[in-house]
Each structure stands twice: as C-alpha cells, then as structure tokens.
C-alpha cells in the first residue's frame, strides 16, 4: 500500500517537543481525503526517515484535510518535526477501530485524557459537542505533567462553556487554577450515575490503569469503559505482527477497545 501525498498546510507548536500539523491531500481535486472515525489513526511517512502511527486529532467534519498532534521522540517524529508549511509527507490511512459514538447515546459521558492522550479524544469531543442533545452530559478529566504541557489550551477554554472540564497537573505554576495532584483524585470525587455512564480513556497505559481502578470502584461497569491502546504499529493492516496484544492486533482490532473485552489481557505484564 503506497502512501498518498499530503502537504503541510499549517504547523503549530503546542509546547516544546510537541506540535500539530494540519495537512491537505495533494490530489484534493479528486475529492476529499477518506473520512475517518474519532479514535482512528494514520501512518505518517517522513521522506526517507520512515513511518509512524499518529492518531487523527482534527474534526471528522472537516473534509479538507487531516490534523495530527505529534510528540517528538524517535527518528521519524524528529523528521516530521522539521516539516514546515508547504512541505510534503506521505499518508496511509485512516486505520483501526475508533470510539463507539453510539455507546454514548443518552449517557453521562466521561472523557478521561492523560498528556498527549487528549489528541485522539479531540475528534470525539468535536462530535459530542456537535450533538449535545444525544447525551446526558459531557465531562472532560484531563491530566498532564505541567500546565504548559497541556494540549489545545485555547480550545479547552472554549469547551468549558459547553462541558465540565476538570484539569489536573503533577506540578503547577503561579497561574494554574486547576488541580495539582493526579486525575484519579477528582475522578474519585466526581458524582456520577454509574449505570448510566460511559467512559472514554486515552493516556499512558499506567494512567489508564489507575483511572479504570477508580471507575470500577465507583461501580462503573467494565463494559462502559473504552480505552485506546498503544503498541508498535508498522503495517496497520494486521500483517506485520508487531502490534499484537494477546489475540488482538491493536492496528485493526483497536486501537480503541471495550475494557470488558480486553480486561484479561490488560492485566498481563509484558504481553
């Protein structure tokens, strides 16, 4: 499967080492790029350097291009970091199973994000905010390391008008108005109707583990918890074997899983 050529339309630094690219297909004349579901990912190719899986973090309703938020870590993300507006990259996708929007219908929705985990949840937030009538309410619990390592701060301020947002950082600063501590604290204190709650989690695996403990202690059923898993995705089509997690191929069976279905795998170390 060859990548499609995309051009960087806009590059925005979220904070040092983390940036957001808005990209547009070079063959846009032939129509919009493929539609995506919140929670899906693309394989982004930096010329000569390689390809990595990055979640889609823009609005599914935006049919002109894709948005990706990327943290610089390895060789490929460093190459992607050097891309400026006008530069080209390759894109394969979208791939994988996303957040099941239908599971949120009529429910109290908890969106629980840790660090960069807000990126794959943002398309879900866009969709939910676009149809607030379909759910009982929406709450975002967002934990990060420091206030200046939070994503989409302007939007968080805007969203605050339409949903409750609880933010928590490990280390605060003078201007920080949110919690200092860990996100499980406010989550444990949240009033909710466990039988009518659905939770969507994305963040470091250990953070999701603690949040799931907190949720199940509050009697939220395992089947009402969805989480997005990270594994080594290379081909994205279930052929290369790298992203196997128990019987699951994270690239095609996930990255979003219902916790009840994967609970037994979630607790096995070094799986």
């Amino acid at each position: 499967m060859t990548p499609e050529v995309f051009r960087v339309e806009q590059r925005r630094e979220e904070f040092p080492g983390t940036f957001t690219l808005r990209i547009r297909g070079e063959r846009a004349k032939n129509g919009s790029p493929a539609e995506f579901q919140p929670g899906q990912f693309n394989m982004l190719y930096a010329f000569g350097a390689g390809e990595i899986a990055i979640s889609l973090s823009g609005s599914p309703r935006d049919r002109d291009g894709y948005v990706h938020t990327i943290r610089t870590h390895g060789f490929v993300s460093q190459a992607l970091e050097r891309l400026q507006a006008g530069d080209l990259l390759g894109v394969r996708g979208p791939f994988g199973c996303g957040w099941p929007l239908s599971a949120a219908k009529g429910k109290e929705v908890l969106i629980i994000a840790g660090g960069l985990g807000l990126a794959p949840l943002r398309p879900l937030i866009y969709n939910l905010l676009g149809d607030t009538q379909s759910v009982r309410n929406i709450r975002l619990f967002y934990g990060a390391r420091r206030p200046d390592e939070m994503l989409y701060r302007d939007e968080l301020a805007q969203w605050a008008g339409s949903m409750e947002i609880v933010q928590s950082v490990d280390h605060g600063d003078a201007d920080w108005a949110g919690h200092i501590g860990v996100i499980t604290g406010p989550l444990a204190g949240a009033e909710l109707d466990p039988q009518n709650t659905v939770a969507f989690l994305c963040g470091p695996e250990v953070m999701m583990r603690f949040c799931i403990q907190t949720l199940t202690a509050k009697a939220v059923p395992e089947s009402a918890i969805y989480l997005s898993m990270e594994r080594n995705m290379k081909c994205a089509t279930g052929h290369c074997g790298h992203c196997q997690w128990g019987p699951n191929f994270v690239c095609k069976d996930g990255p979003v899983f219902n916790f009840a279905g994967v609970q037994s795998w979630f607790n096995i170390r070094a799986l």
């Binding site: 870590h73 501590g181 499980t184 963040g203 953070m207």
Partner: peptide, 24 residues
Amino acid sequence: DRLHTTRVQLMDVYNQQRPPLDSG
C-alpha cells in the same frame, strides 16, 4: 490516598523520556 497520589506523581507518567522498563 495522598500516598497513592504522590507515588503516581513520582512515576511521572506523562513524561515518555524514561529509561527502558524492567522485565515486567
């Protein structure tokens, strides 16, 4: 609860630049 919070803060879970994990 406070100890748990402190430990999780110490784990610095949102920082991905950490040395390789142990054997699990």
